[in-house]
Simulated assay, not measured.
Amino acid sequence: MNFFVVLQQMLALFAMIFIGFYAYKVHWVTQDTSDRLSKLLVNILNPALLINGVLDKTVVAKKDLLLENLFYIFLYFVLLIGLSFPIAKVLRVGKMENRYQLMLIFSNVGFMGIPVLRSIFGNGCVIYITFYILIYNILIYTLGIAFAQRSLPKEERKNAVKEMINPGTVSAVFAILIFVFHPNIPQGAVTFFDYVGNAVIPFSMIIIGISIAQMPWKEIFGHVKLYIFSAIKLLVIPILCAILLRPLKRDTMLFVIFILMLAMPSGSIIAMIVREYGGKTEEEDICSKGVLMTTLFSIITIPIVVLFL
Rank of each mutant, 00 (worst) to 15 (best):
K95T: 15
L102W: 04
L49P: 00
S107T: 09
I127N: 00
L79V: 13
M112F: 14
L37E: 05
Y72H: 04
G82R: 13
N159I: 05
V109M: 14
V59I: 06
S34L: 05
S151V: 07
F74Y: 08
G82T: 09
Q31S: 12
V29C: 14
W28G: 13
F111S: 02
K25C: 03
N123K: 06
K25P: 07
F131A: 05
H27M: 10
A48C: 13
R99P: 00
V59W: 00
R36G: 13
N108L: 10
R150G: 12
Y141E: 06
Y100D: 00
T58A: 11
E68A: 11
A61F: 02
L83I: 08
K25Y: 06
I129L: 15
A146K: 12
Q149G: 08
G144I: 02
I87W: 03
F71W: 06
K95F: 08
Y24S: 07
Y100M: 14
I138W: 12
Q149T: 07
A146N: 11
F71C: 09
L50T: 01
K63Q: 15
M112D: 08
L49F: 06
L65A: 10
A23F: 13
K63S: 09
L66H: 06
L139I: 03
F77P: 02
D35W: 15
W28V: 04
Y141N: 10
L66F: 12
L104K: 01
L75Q: 04
F71G: 11
T130N: 07
I133D: 03
P86H: 11
P153R: 10
T30N: 11
N98M: 11
L79Q: 00
R99Y: 15
V78R: 06
Q149I: 04
K89S: 13
